[in-house]
Simulated scan of single mutants.
Amino acid sequence: MKHVRIDDVENDVQPAAVVRRLTEALETTDVAINHYELEPGDSFAFGYHRHEIQEEVFFVRSGTATFETETGDVTVGAGEIVRFAPGEFQRGWNRGDERVVALALGAPLAYGESELRRDCPTCGGQTRNELDRQDDEDAPEGAAVVAYCLECDTETGRWVTGSMPGDVP
């Protein structure tokens, strides 16, 4: 057995005010577990994405999350849960006025190949992107995550803990 207090797990750099990666803390081997707290305008992910082999489930404990999908937006309120099958594109946002608190589960633990799409100002549309962790002396914890367009190498987003400058829903 492994018992963990969520608030004791360190916050990670994400486009959400709080993301606590519980997988390692709980020593799970077959499922990824993340606790999220999204302020208005925050997102669960760095971009519109899909995973080759991992399905994702989001349980919204409080607030309302809106997920962009290939078939349109899906709203998930407090006490509701949504599942995305492997290969389904999605990105969840807090487009409301109150904080969203949610638990995300992904299985199997490995993603397989992932595809991340973001708007590229140089290419003029949504393109495939990749993420890179970088040293950033201006960041509170000295690190940032940066998204780059794979077509033209333009930076399409930069995040430090609890902040998402330049990234809008």
Rank of each mutant, 00 (worst) to 15 (best):
G124S: 12
L105T: 01
Q134Y: 06
G112T: 07
T122E: 14
E98R: 14
R83T: 15
V101H: 04
R118K: 14
R133S: 11
A110G: 11
S114F: 01
D136Y: 06
C120A: 14
Q126W: 12
R91I: 00
G125R: 11
R133Q: 13
A85H: 15
L109H: 12
L131I: 02
S114C: 02
E98L: 02
F84K: 02
N94Q: 11
E137P: 00
A110W: 04
N94F: 02
D136W: 02
D138R: 05
T122I: 15
S114W: 03
R118P: 01
G125F: 02
G87E: 11
G125E: 13
V82Q: 01
L105F: 12
T127Q: 14
D132W: 04
D136C: 04
C123T: 01
E115L: 10
R83G: 11
R99E: 14
G125I: 03
R99F: 00
P108Y: 14
D97R: 11
T127P: 00
D138M: 05
R128L: 06
G92A: 07
R95S: 05
E130N: 00
L109C: 12
C120H: 01
R91H: 11
L105G: 01
A85I: 09
F89R: 08
L103I: 14
R99Y: 05
G87W: 08
G87F: 00
Q134I: 15
D136S: 06
D132Q: 08
R83D: 06
N129S: 14
D97H: 02
P86Q: 07
S114K: 10
G125N: 10
G124V: 05
S114N: 10
R117T: 09
A85W: 14
D135W: 05
G124I: 10
E130G: 00
Y111L: 08
E113T: 07
G92V: 02
P121K: 12
E113I: 08
T127M: 10
R118S: 10
E130H: 07
R118T: 09
E113W: 03
L116P: 07
L131R: 06
R95W: 01
L131C: 07
F84P: 00
D136E: 10
L109N: 13
G96W: 10
P108H: 13
G124H: 02
N94L: 03
D132I: 13
N94A: 06
F84T: 01
P108I: 11
N129E: 15
Q90F: 12
G124D: 02
P86S: 11
A85N: 15
R118Y: 08
Q134E: 13
E88G: 05
R133T: 13
L131S: 05
S114L: 10
G112P: 02
D97I: 00
R133E: 13
V101A: 11
A107L: 06
R118V: 12
